[in-house]
Computed example of a mutant assay.
Amino acid sequence: MHKKFRIRFGFSCSDNRKSKTCPELCRRIENLKWGGIFAIALTFAFGGVAAHAQQRPKVARIGILRVDGSTSPAAMEAINDLKRGLRNLGYVEGQNINFEIRLAENKLERLPTLAAELVQLKLDAIVTGGPQATKATKEATNTIPIVMGRMDDVVEHGLVTSLARPGGNVTGLSFQTGELSGKWLDLLKEALPKLTRVAALWDTTGTAGQLRTVEAAARSMGLHLAVSKVAGLKDFDFVFDGIRKERMEGLIILASPVFTGQRERLAELAAKHNLPAIYYHEGFAQAGGLLAYGPKQSEFSWHRAAIFVDKILKGAKPADLPVEQPTKFDFIINLKTAKQIGVTIPPNVLARADRVIR
Protein backbone atom coordinates (compact mmCIF):
# COMPACT_ATOMS: atom_id res chain seq x y z
CA MET A 1 0.00 0.00 0.00
CA HIS A 2 2.75 2.38 0.81
CA LYS A 3 5.10 3.37 -1.97
CA LYS A 4 8.69 3.98 -1.11
CA PHE A 5 10.50 6.93 -2.47
CA ARG A 6 14.27 7.10 -2.49
CA ILE A 7 15.92 10.47 -2.96
CA ARG A 8 19.53 10.42 -4.13
CA PHE A 9 21.87 13.32 -3.63
CA GLY A 10 24.94 13.91 -5.69
CA PHE A 11 25.87 12.27 -8.87
CA SER A 12 27.89 9.28 -9.77
CA CYS A 13 29.00 8.24 -13.16
CA SER A 14 27.91 4.74 -12.23
CA ASP A 15 24.26 5.83 -12.09
CA ASN A 16 23.76 5.46 -15.78
CA ARG A 17 26.55 3.65 -17.45
CA LYS A 18 24.59 3.34 -20.68
CA SER A 19 24.07 7.10 -21.08
CA LYS A 20 26.15 8.69 -23.85
CA THR A 21 26.30 11.98 -22.02
CA CYS A 22 27.61 10.54 -18.78
CA PRO A 23 31.31 10.27 -19.68
CA GLU A 24 31.39 13.83 -20.97
CA LEU A 25 29.65 15.14 -17.87
CA CYS A 26 32.05 13.25 -15.68
CA ARG A 27 35.00 14.77 -17.45
CA ARG A 28 33.57 18.25 -16.95
CA ILE A 29 33.00 17.68 -13.27
CA GLU A 30 36.54 16.27 -12.89
CA ASN A 31 38.00 19.32 -14.67
CA LEU A 32 36.05 21.67 -12.42
CA LYS A 33 37.31 19.83 -9.36
CA TRP A 34 40.96 20.09 -10.39
CA GLY A 35 40.50 23.68 -11.48
CA GLY A 36 39.21 24.55 -8.03
CA ILE A 37 42.15 22.84 -6.37
CA PHE A 38 44.57 24.69 -8.65
CA ALA A 39 42.90 28.04 -7.86
CA ILE A 40 43.15 27.38 -4.14
CA ALA A 41 46.82 26.46 -4.52
CA LEU A 42 47.52 29.65 -6.44
CA THR A 43 45.75 31.68 -3.78
CA PHE A 44 47.91 30.21 -1.06
CA ALA A 45 51.06 30.58 -3.12
CA PHE A 46 50.55 34.23 -4.01
CA GLY A 47 49.16 34.96 -0.58
CA GLY A 48 52.34 33.57 0.91
CA VAL A 49 54.49 35.71 -1.40
CA ALA A 50 52.49 38.79 -0.49
CA ALA A 51 52.77 38.02 3.20
CA HIS A 52 56.52 37.51 2.82
CA ALA A 53 56.81 40.84 1.00
CA GLN A 54 54.86 42.55 3.77
CA GLN A 55 57.10 41.01 6.41
CA ARG A 56 60.32 42.00 4.63
CA PRO A 57 62.01 44.67 6.81
CA LYS A 58 62.24 48.18 5.43
CA VAL A 59 65.68 49.27 4.23
CA ALA A 60 66.62 52.49 6.00
CA ARG A 61 68.19 55.21 3.84
CA ILE A 62 70.62 57.55 5.56
CA GLY A 63 72.30 60.60 4.06
CA ILE A 64 75.74 61.90 5.03
CA LEU A 65 76.94 65.44 4.32
CA ARG A 66 80.40 66.74 5.18
CA VAL A 67 82.53 69.75 4.33
CA ASP A 68 85.70 67.80 3.58
CA GLY A 69 86.45 65.30 0.83
CA SER A 70 87.13 61.67 0.08
CA THR A 71 90.89 62.12 0.56
CA SER A 72 90.42 63.45 4.09
CA PRO A 73 91.30 60.90 6.80
CA ALA A 74 88.89 62.75 9.10
CA ALA A 75 85.99 62.17 6.69
CA MET A 76 86.67 58.47 6.21
CA GLU A 77 87.23 58.02 9.94
CA ALA A 78 83.90 59.67 10.77
CA ILE A 79 81.88 57.77 8.17
CA ASN A 80 83.41 54.45 9.22
CA ASP A 81 82.67 55.27 12.87
CA LEU A 82 79.02 55.89 12.00
CA LYS A 83 78.72 52.64 10.07
CA ARG A 84 80.44 50.73 12.88
CA GLY A 85 78.03 52.19 15.42
CA LEU A 86 75.05 51.21 13.29
CA ARG A 87 76.42 47.68 12.76
CA ASN A 88 76.62 47.30 16.53
CA LEU A 89 72.92 48.18 16.62
CA GLY A 90 72.00 45.55 14.05
CA TYR A 91 72.13 47.54 10.81
CA VAL A 92 73.97 45.87 7.93
CA GLU A 93 74.77 47.93 4.86
CA GLY A 94 73.10 46.49 1.78
CA GLN A 95 70.60 44.50 3.84
CA ASN A 96 68.59 46.80 6.08
CA ILE A 97 70.39 50.10 5.63
CA ASN A 98 71.96 52.08 2.78
CA PHE A 99 73.88 55.35 2.67
CA GLU A 100 73.90 58.35 0.37
CA ILE A 101 77.18 60.23 0.89
CA ARG A 102 77.90 63.76 -0.28
CA LEU A 103 81.26 65.49 0.34
CA ALA A 104 81.84 69.16 -0.45
CA GLU A 105 85.60 68.72 -1.03
CA ASN A 106 86.23 71.78 1.19
CA LYS A 107 84.13 74.01 -1.10
CA LEU A 108 81.56 75.54 1.23
CA GLU A 109 79.58 76.98 -1.68
CA ARG A 110 78.70 73.43 -2.76
CA LEU A 111 76.93 72.57 0.49
CA PRO A 112 73.45 73.99 -0.39
CA THR A 113 73.37 72.03 -3.66
CA LEU A 114 74.52 68.81 -2.01
CA ALA A 115 72.03 69.26 0.82
CA ALA A 116 69.21 69.78 -1.70
CA GLU A 117 70.24 66.57 -3.50
CA LEU A 118 69.95 64.59 -0.29
CA VAL A 119 66.60 66.12 0.61
CA GLN A 120 65.16 65.22 -2.80
CA LEU A 121 65.97 61.57 -2.10
CA LYS A 122 63.43 61.60 0.76
CA LEU A 123 65.81 59.92 3.19
CA ASP A 124 65.00 58.69 6.68
CA ALA A 125 67.69 60.88 8.27
CA ILE A 126 70.76 62.92 7.33
CA VAL A 127 73.97 62.91 9.40
CA THR A 128 76.03 66.09 9.07
CA GLY A 129 79.59 67.07 9.86
CA GLY A 130 80.09 70.60 11.13
CA PRO A 131 77.92 73.70 11.44
CA GLN A 132 78.17 74.67 7.76
CA ALA A 133 76.84 71.30 6.59
CA THR A 134 74.17 71.28 9.29
CA LYS A 135 73.00 74.79 8.42
CA ALA A 136 72.81 73.96 4.71
CA THR A 137 70.75 70.84 5.43
CA LYS A 138 68.45 72.62 7.88
CA GLU A 139 67.79 75.32 5.28
CA ALA A 140 66.92 72.61 2.75
CA THR A 141 64.44 70.73 4.97
CA ASN A 142 62.50 71.19 8.17
CA THR A 143 61.03 67.68 8.12
CA ILE A 144 63.82 65.15 7.50
CA PRO A 145 65.63 64.45 10.81
CA ILE A 146 69.18 65.84 10.96
CA VAL A 147 71.77 64.25 13.25
CA MET A 148 74.97 66.19 13.98
CA GLY A 149 77.88 63.77 13.87
CA ARG A 150 80.00 65.97 16.11
CA MET A 151 80.23 69.73 16.01
CA ASP A 152 80.85 72.78 18.14
CA ASP A 153 78.51 75.30 19.75
CA VAL A 154 75.21 74.14 18.32
CA VAL A 155 73.19 76.67 20.35
CA GLU A 156 75.37 79.61 19.35
CA HIS A 157 75.05 78.55 15.72
CA GLY A 158 71.28 78.82 16.15
CA LEU A 159 70.61 75.24 15.10
CA VAL A 160 68.66 74.18 18.21
CA THR A 161 66.54 75.96 20.79
CA SER A 162 68.40 74.40 23.71
CA LEU A 163 70.62 71.41 24.43
CA ALA A 164 67.96 69.72 26.57
CA ARG A 165 65.08 70.24 24.12
CA PRO A 166 66.42 70.95 20.65
CA GLY A 167 63.05 71.58 18.98
CA GLY A 168 62.83 71.41 15.20
CA ASN A 169 64.50 68.61 13.26
CA VAL A 170 68.13 68.81 14.49
CA THR A 171 69.84 66.89 17.29
CA GLY A 172 73.07 64.95 17.82
CA LEU A 173 76.48 65.65 19.34
CA SER A 174 77.95 69.04 20.20
CA PHE A 175 80.76 70.31 22.42
CA GLN A 176 80.96 73.87 23.68
CA THR A 177 84.20 75.48 22.53
CA GLY A 178 83.47 78.58 24.55
CA GLU A 179 84.16 76.48 27.63
CA LEU A 180 87.27 74.86 26.15
CA SER A 181 89.17 77.66 24.44
CA GLY A 182 90.37 79.15 27.73
CA LYS A 183 91.66 75.71 28.70
CA TRP A 184 93.63 75.49 25.45
CA LEU A 185 95.48 78.69 26.31
CA ASP A 186 96.13 77.52 29.90
CA LEU A 187 97.69 74.27 28.70
CA LEU A 188 99.78 76.00 26.05
CA LYS A 189 101.11 78.42 28.67
CA GLU A 190 101.94 75.58 31.07
CA ALA A 191 103.79 73.71 28.32
CA LEU A 192 105.63 76.94 27.34
CA PRO A 193 106.22 78.83 30.62
CA LYS A 194 108.00 81.68 28.84
CA LEU A 195 105.15 82.26 26.39
CA THR A 196 104.24 85.95 25.95
CA ARG A 197 103.01 86.23 22.36
CA VAL A 198 100.43 83.81 20.98
CA ALA A 199 98.37 83.59 17.80
CA ALA A 200 94.87 82.15 17.39
CA LEU A 201 93.83 80.64 14.06
CA TRP A 202 90.11 81.25 13.57
CA ASP A 203 87.84 80.06 10.78
CA THR A 204 85.51 83.00 10.09
CA THR A 205 82.58 80.60 9.50
CA GLY A 206 82.99 79.28 13.04
CA THR A 207 81.55 80.64 16.27
CA ALA A 208 82.83 83.86 17.79
CA GLY A 209 82.20 82.56 21.32
CA GLN A 210 85.42 80.53 21.42
CA LEU A 211 87.34 83.55 20.12
CA ARG A 212 85.90 85.84 22.80
CA THR A 213 86.82 83.34 25.50
CA VAL A 214 90.42 82.99 24.38
CA GLU A 215 90.76 86.77 24.05
CA ALA A 216 89.51 87.21 27.62
CA ALA A 217 91.86 84.48 28.87
CA ALA A 218 94.84 86.11 27.12
CA ARG A 219 94.06 89.45 28.77
CA SER A 220 93.79 87.88 32.21
CA MET A 221 97.14 86.11 31.71
CA GLY A 222 98.87 89.21 30.36
CA LEU A 223 99.57 87.61 26.98
CA HIS A 224 99.66 89.37 23.63
CA LEU A 225 97.12 87.64 21.36
CA ALA A 226 97.00 88.05 17.59
CA VAL A 227 93.97 86.62 15.77
CA SER A 228 94.61 85.21 12.31
CA LYS A 229 91.40 84.86 10.31
CA VAL A 230 91.00 82.14 7.71
CA ALA A 231 88.25 82.23 5.09
CA GLY A 232 89.49 79.40 2.88
CA LEU A 233 92.20 76.80 2.39
CA LYS A 234 94.20 79.13 0.18
CA ASP A 235 94.82 81.35 3.20
CA PHE A 236 96.83 78.78 5.17
CA ASP A 237 100.32 79.42 3.81
CA PHE A 238 99.86 83.19 3.88
CA VAL A 239 98.53 83.15 7.46
CA PHE A 240 101.37 80.99 8.79
CA ASP A 241 103.96 83.21 7.13
CA GLY A 242 102.36 86.20 8.85
CA ILE A 243 102.29 84.48 12.24
CA ARG A 244 105.98 83.76 12.03
CA LYS A 245 106.85 87.26 10.85
CA GLU A 246 105.05 88.68 13.86
CA ARG A 247 107.34 86.57 16.06
CA MET A 248 104.54 84.60 17.66
CA GLU A 249 105.77 82.02 20.16
CA GLY A 250 102.75 79.75 20.20
CA LEU A 251 99.53 78.99 18.34
CA ILE A 252 95.97 77.97 19.22
CA ILE A 253 93.89 76.34 16.50
CA LEU A 254 90.23 77.12 17.23
CA ALA A 255 87.60 74.51 16.39
CA SER A 256 86.38 74.23 12.81
CA PRO A 257 85.36 71.29 10.58
CA VAL A 258 87.45 72.89 7.83
CA PHE A 259 90.50 72.68 10.10
CA THR A 260 89.66 69.12 11.16
CA GLY A 261 89.66 68.04 7.53
CA GLN A 262 93.08 69.67 7.09
CA ARG A 263 94.71 68.45 10.29
CA GLU A 264 97.75 66.90 8.59
CA ARG A 265 98.44 70.09 6.65
CA LEU A 266 98.02 72.34 9.69
CA ALA A 267 100.28 70.18 11.83
CA GLU A 268 102.86 70.20 9.05
CA LEU A 269 102.74 73.99 8.66
CA ALA A 270 103.13 74.51 12.42
CA ALA A 271 106.18 72.23 12.48
CA LYS A 272 107.62 73.89 9.38
CA HIS A 273 107.51 77.27 11.13
CA ASN A 274 108.65 75.84 14.50
CA LEU A 275 105.39 76.94 16.09
CA PRO A 276 104.31 75.07 19.22
CA ALA A 277 100.56 74.64 18.76
CA ILE A 278 97.59 73.26 20.64
CA TYR A 279 94.57 71.77 18.90
CA TYR A 280 91.01 70.77 19.84
CA HIS A 281 91.00 67.23 18.43
CA GLU A 282 93.30 64.30 19.18
CA GLY A 283 93.63 63.61 15.46
CA PHE A 284 95.90 66.65 15.19
CA ALA A 285 98.38 65.21 17.70
CA GLN A 286 98.32 61.90 15.85
CA ALA A 287 99.07 63.84 12.65
CA GLY A 288 102.09 65.56 14.19
CA GLY A 289 100.60 68.40 16.25
CA LEU A 290 102.38 69.19 19.51
CA LEU A 291 99.40 69.32 21.91
CA ALA A 292 95.74 68.40 21.73
CA TYR A 293 92.95 68.77 24.25
CA GLY A 294 89.35 67.87 23.50
CA PRO A 295 86.51 65.38 23.90
CA LYS A 296 87.69 61.79 24.22
CA GLN A 297 87.46 60.48 20.66
CA SER A 298 86.58 56.92 21.59
CA GLU A 299 83.49 58.13 23.46
CA PHE A 300 82.47 61.19 21.48
CA SER A 301 82.61 60.61 17.77
CA TRP A 302 80.31 59.63 14.91
CA HIS A 303 79.69 56.17 16.33
CA ARG A 304 77.61 57.93 18.99
CA ALA A 305 75.53 59.55 16.24
CA ALA A 306 74.43 56.03 15.30
CA ILE A 307 72.42 55.89 18.52
CA PHE A 308 70.44 58.96 17.45
CA VAL A 309 69.85 57.49 14.00
CA ASP A 310 68.60 54.24 15.55
CA LYS A 311 66.17 56.06 17.83
CA ILE A 312 64.83 58.13 14.93
CA LEU A 313 64.34 55.05 12.77
CA LYS A 314 62.33 53.58 15.64
CA GLY A 315 60.02 56.59 15.74
CA ALA A 316 61.68 59.16 18.02
CA LYS A 317 61.51 62.85 17.08
CA PRO A 318 64.73 64.93 16.94
CA ALA A 319 62.96 67.70 18.85
CA ASP A 320 62.65 65.37 21.85
CA LEU A 321 66.20 63.96 21.82
CA PRO A 322 68.60 66.07 23.96
CA VAL A 323 71.87 67.07 22.34
CA GLU A 324 74.67 64.91 23.70
CA GLN A 325 77.71 66.63 25.20
CA PRO A 326 81.10 65.12 26.03
CA THR A 327 81.88 64.13 29.61
CA LYS A 328 85.48 62.96 29.17
CA PHE A 329 88.41 64.85 27.68
CA ASP A 330 91.90 63.81 26.64
CA PHE A 331 95.14 65.77 26.83
CA ILE A 332 97.69 64.41 24.36
CA ILE A 333 101.36 65.39 23.93
CA ASN A 334 103.45 64.49 20.92
CA LEU A 335 107.07 64.29 22.12
CA LYS A 336 108.31 63.47 18.63
CA THR A 337 107.09 66.87 17.48
CA ALA A 338 108.45 68.56 20.60
CA LYS A 339 111.92 67.23 19.77
CA GLN A 340 111.54 68.24 16.12
CA ILE A 341 110.75 71.89 16.91
CA GLY A 342 113.11 72.14 19.89
CA VAL A 343 110.56 72.35 22.73
CA THR A 344 111.03 70.78 26.15
CA ILE A 345 107.77 69.92 27.87
CA PRO A 346 107.96 70.40 31.67
CA PRO A 347 107.70 67.15 33.68
CA ASN A 348 104.59 68.34 35.56
CA VAL A 349 102.78 68.88 32.23
CA LEU A 350 103.88 65.49 30.92
CA ALA A 351 102.51 63.90 34.07
CA ARG A 352 99.06 65.35 33.33
CA ALA A 353 98.86 63.92 29.82
CA ASP A 354 96.36 61.15 29.15
CA ARG A 355 98.54 59.95 26.30
CA VAL A 356 102.09 60.69 25.17
CA ILE A 357 103.19 60.02 21.61
CA ARG A 358 106.89 59.16 21.62
Rank of each mutant, 00 (worst) to 15 (best):
F259S: 03
G182V: 09
T213D: 02
F300I: 06
S298Y: 08
V198I: 14
G232A: 15
T134E: 07
S14V: 09
A199M: 02
R197T: 11
V155F: 06
L321R: 05
L163Q: 03
P112A: 07
F259H: 05
E100W: 00
Y293T: 00
L350K: 03
C26P: 00
G172A: 08
L223T: 01
P193G: 08
A319S: 15
V147Q: 02
A51K: 09
A287W: 02
R28S: 13
D310R: 01
G242E: 11
L118M: 08
R84H: 10
L275K: 01
F175W: 13
F99D: 01
L254W: 10
D186N: 15
F284L: 05
E215L: 12
N31H: 09
N16F: 11
F300Q: 04
R150S: 10
A305Q: 03
Q176M: 09
A41M: 15
R27W: 13
N348F: 13
K83P: 00
K328W: 00
A75I: 02
A140F: 04
I101T: 07
Y91W: 14
L195H: 08
F331D: 02
S181D: 12
M248Q: 09
A200H: 08
M148L: 12
K314A: 11
G206Y: 06
P57G: 07
L269K: 01
L86C: 00
T204W: 04
L82F: 09
L275E: 03
E30L: 13
V127D: 00
P112W: 07
A319P: 13
F331N: 02
M76H: 12
R8V: 13
N274D: 11
A306V: 00
S12D: 15
G63T: 05
L121E: 12
E179D: 11
Q210R: 04
S298I: 11
E179V: 05
L163Y: 07
R247W: 06
T337P: 11
P322H: 12
G47Q: 10
K311G: 05
D124E: 10
F284D: 01
L195S: 05
G172R: 03
A53E: 14
L350H: 02
L86T: 00
L335C: 11
N106Y: 08
T161K: 12
S14Y: 11
R8F: 10
W184Q: 09
I278Y: 04
Q325K: 12
V239K: 02
T205M: 10
P347K: 05
N106S: 10
A60Q: 08
H2Y: 10
Q120N: 15
L201H: 05
H224Y: 11
F329N: 06
W34P: 01
Q262H: 12
